[in-house]
């Protein structure tokens, strides 16, 4: 709190990064705190906005047995936090030809038979920074419900935290990616307007307009760009 005549000091907290204590300003995210402490991150950091899943981090808090898992760019530091950044998750992605596989359990289980090792412990769900129902997705995969897997894992960032915590050693995010691809290729309803538009393009509906644009000078293009229709804010 700011008080008149009192010098304002930034509140500092102690965090332990890879076993070493550092004093960092409270309120920073784990990622910024690491950089404040002098780490120069070239791996384990990406969009800084909670979308790319590169900065998977595990941590514990004093007096709490739980091992928390979260994204370093989205999680504020707390005093006594003991943390480790996990820049990558070793997990093999199996090769497949999407045009040759069926959208069902047979494909998922033959590429990733370790799905059958799930013991329903739910550790994956507890580890997910996106709060997805990860175990439900594993179970859906095990019974071949590709559409349900795609639905449950739509917001997966492939951070790999579930995969590192899984006692059954399932490479979750590869299974999710395969399931979403199978869903998109075979199960999702086909968009009629897209089909129509592609048809129009193939028939050359926009060709004249494209040709005209290609023939314009840089100046003319600039003017055209400035005069473009913009959706009202």
């Amino acid at each position: 709190m700011n008080q008149v005549g009192v010098e304002t000091k930034t509140e500092m907290v102690t965090v332990y990064i890879m076993g070493q204590a550092y004093k960092v300003p409270a309120g920073l995210t784990i990622l910024k705190a690491m950089e404040y402490a002098g780490f120069r991150l070239t791996r384990g950091v990406g969009c800084r906005g909670g979308f790319c899943g590169a900065c998977a981090t595990v941590y514990r808090l004093p007096g709490d047995y739980r091992l928390y898992a979260d994204l370093a760019c989205q999680t504020p530091v707390r005093d006594g936090m003991y943390l480790a950044l996990l820049p990558s998750t070793p997990a093999e992605r199996k090769p497949y030809d999407l045009r040759k596989v069926k959208p069902g359990g047979e494909t998922l289980l033959s590429l990733y038979p370790e799905l059958a090792r799930c013991v329903a412990c739910n550790t994956c769900t507890k580890a997910c920074p996106q709060k997805l129902e990860v175990m439900d997705a594993v179970q859906a995969a095990l019974r071949g419900d590709v559409a349900q897997v795609a639905e449950l894992t739509f917001d997966c960032l492939s951070c790999g935290l579930c995969t590192l915590r899984c006692p059954a050693e399932i490479p979750h995010y590869h299974v999710w990616q395969l399931s979403r691809r199978l869903y998109g290729a075979y199960l999702a309803p086909k968009a009629e307007h897209l089909r129509r538009r592609l048809q129009e393009m193939r028939e050359g509906k926009f060709q004249a307009e494209l040709d005209r644009l290609m023939s314009l000078s840089k100046e003319e293009l600039r003017e055209l760009y400035k005069a473009r229709e913009i959706e009202p804010e």
Partner: peptide, 18 residues
């Protein structure tokens, strides 16, 4: 050795894996 074939149902895989 797991002798995996594409037709094996999950009920067999789960048992063998365990």
């Amino acid at each position: 050795e797991l002798r995996l074939t594409p037709d094996l149902p999950q009920i067999a895989l789960v048992g063998a894996m365990r």
